[in-house]
Nucleic acid binder design. Structure first.
Length: 107
DNA sequence: TCATTGGCTATCA
DNA sequence: CTGATAGCCAATG
């Protein structure tokens, strides 16, 4: 990203840069993103940044889920669509929860 | 499982 | 500063 297509804060740039690098078939959590960009406690702001999403379609925000294994929100609504897309990319689910390979499913 | 507190962080109105 | 928001953690009921 050497061009500024929009006025973003440094924080957001890092968030988008990281999220846009998420490979297909893989998911990440807000907490993980926040930690990767240097602010492990900014998970809140990370979700906020994605919500603003200046590059729709370019930023796979649907690959960013919650640490609980749930989808969180998508397009201002529930993560129904999110799960659908993730399921298509190879992710597995369990009654509304996403099963991550790095984490044991709880219950 | 769900709801509620309290604390954290970044950005906007 | 305040309130709100795509979150997280821990505790409580």
């Amino acid at each position: 990203m050497h061009v500024d297509a929009a006025k973003l804060t440094e924080f957001q740039k890092r968030v988008f840069a990281y999220v846009s690098k998420i490979p297909k078939g893989k998911v990440t959590t807000y907490e993980e993103v926040a930690r990767a960009i240097g602010s492990p406690k900014a998970y809140r702001a990370v979700g906020n940044a994605l919500r603003k999403n200046p590059f729709p379609g370019k930023i796979p925000c649907h690959r960013v889920i919650r640490s609980d294994g749930r989808a969180g929100k998508y397009l201002g609504k529930d993560g129904k669509k999110k799960m659908r897309m993730l399921a298509k990319e190879g992710l597995e689910f369990k009654k509304g929860r996403i099963r991550k390979q790095e984490k044991m499913q709880q219950k």
